[in-house]
Design a protein around this nucleic acid. Sequence first.
DNA 1: CGCCGTGTTGACTATTCTCAACCCAGGTGG
DNA 2: CCACCTGGGTTGAGAATAGTCAACACGGCG
Lengths: 249, 249
Amino acid sequence: MPSPLIRKLENFTKLSDDDKLALDKATRQVRVYPAREDIICEGDCPEAVILLIEGWACRCKTLEDGRRQIMAYFVPGDLCDINVFILRQMDHSISTLTPATIALIPRDTMLDLMAQHPRITQALWWSTLVDEATLRAWVVNLGQRSAYERAAHLLCELFYRLRAVGLTNGKSCILPITQGELGDTLGLTIVHTNRMLQDLRRDSLVELRGRHLTILDLDALQKVAMFSPGYLHLEHEGEALDANQRQQT
Amino acid sequence: MPSPLIRKLENFTKLSDDDKLALDKATRQVRVYPAREDIICEGDCPEAVILLIEGWACRCKTLEDGRRQIMAYFVPGDLCDINVFILRQMDHSISTLTPATIALIPRDTMLDLMAQHPRITQALWWSTLVDEATLRAWVVNLGQRSAYERAAHLLCELFYRLRAVGLTNGKSCILPITQGELGDTLGLTIVHTNRMLQDLRRDSLVELRGRHLTILDLDALQKVAMFSPGYLHLEHEGEALDANQRQQT
DNA sequence: CGCCGTGTTGACTATTCTCAACCCAGGTGG
DNA sequence: CCACCTGGGTTGAGAATAGTCAACACGGCG
């Protein structure tokens, strides 16, 4: 079974056995967290990069008056904050949503890894840029789409991302988050989120019972959401770049 | 007069004369665009980094049905898309808002610059991370704040950013964008944007006539917006890092 | 058993959008 | 010079969307 990180990075480019070994070695020390716990808090100065191995986590920010916005979901294989260790302190928190297993990759290990494995470096860059593109997609989602479209868009994105790391089963996947959390993501109240999800069910686009999500009609769902998966860059587009790199080095 | 890029990067760290010379040299070839023109369109594959020297530009995305979301503003000194040249194609456009002067820094020049000037590289990283933090702040803005707070927050951010590149005059600055564009940024209709701006004026927080913005009471404006400028990382925090770097190299 | 967290519902309110009109300044062409 | 046009900005009235509050259902768990 490949680690989810390797599986994820190979969505972008082909890694050598040596690359994979180095990644495995760097992510061997793991730590377990319960659900709904901060891994890093706003104001902390992070010294290591967090790799999520199992479970779900999120990047979120709470305003002074308690309103909370989730700004990213992390699923197994995701690196939370590859880069923040350049900045002085976190302007948001990373919290678990479910019980989670993480590996902490110390700053220096990370730098070594990047110095010695150019393909890993490229893949990490790619991963950063995908994260940024995702964030932009969320800005569009929050700014321009209706509540119903917004919910549809989020479900599309999560389904694609889970599929890319092998966490789907046909049209289904586990979605271990509450409607409250979805609401904090979509900028909606919990009540309205609930109604939008019901509408999506009523329109036979999805089935959502307990933690189990089934996309009944992905095409139709994408259409109402105006979702196009391009921004997730899951099409192995690094292969050309990999060739480039050989020329340049 | 220092170039706005150098001024901006020096918000983060001190550059040597040699660094500055290299930057000047790399940004000598300029190009002029009229207002409201695409510099790069969605779908294009960019081959150079765009440095905005004069005027305003934005990053924006238009949905199939015409709804548009502005995802970032660029003011003089800003680099639009330092990194996108890793990805295959743009998932959004970069457009001018006013007549603008830009420099195109070819991919290779950029790579050379980064290879030979570690402080520039650091500063560029910092700039990328600030862009990301800004995007996160926008997600929070769109997701959690009311229309009124959202408008206040945007004005705070723009004022701080303009001040950091020397484009303010006391409490005033030039804001060369229409209410329609503000609306596309805030996820509001033009009508509602107009009313929120009027409310901000009525509450004596800002004065906005023509292209001229005056912040009458910055503290109060920040308070209603729940704005804290930390995410812009304008506090010269790279100086410590600069020392670090000397140790490591 | 009873409690708690999550999901669901209904009635009412607030916010935001839509549409349509009008104002005004600046630029253009006659 | 004026008439006209255009692109912003502004206003009002009514409709649609989303929020609030309060209640209840249901399953898991101590």
